[in-house]
Design a protein around this nucleic acid. Sequence first.
DNA 1: GCCATGGCTAGTA
DNA 2: GCCATGGCTAGTA
Length: 111
Amino acid sequence: MNEFQERVYAVILAIPPGRVASYGAIAARAGLPGRARLVGRLMGEVPDGMTLPWFRVLRASGQIAFPAGSRGFREQSRLLKAEGVEVRNGRVPLSRFGLDADIDRAIWGMF
DNA sequence: GCCATGGCTAGTA
DNA sequence: GCCATGGCTAGTA
């Protein structure tokens, strides 16, 4: 696991329950702006035994990245709703559930 | 090539 | 929708 990978996981771990962040935002906060797709790939490479709140990560539009109706799509929807996040038509209103300023500042300061 | 992305535009209502 | 991007992987030679 390289340093960027560890940073990405650390940033995702810092997203509090009931909040979400985009792939691009995570990449930027982990120190590599513009690497949103890399974050998506790393999500599929989480080491065994590591628990990650992967379902709090969405597209920049607030949409769930999995194809609508897929297993991953339903699971992500379910987990988000379970912690009070509103999901309608596979989309979360970022204005209400995105990171608040204090948390975001703390995450930027992590590295 | 492929993709768990993102940004910007054309075309409809 | 479409195209640009970045990084990894399958498949050929």
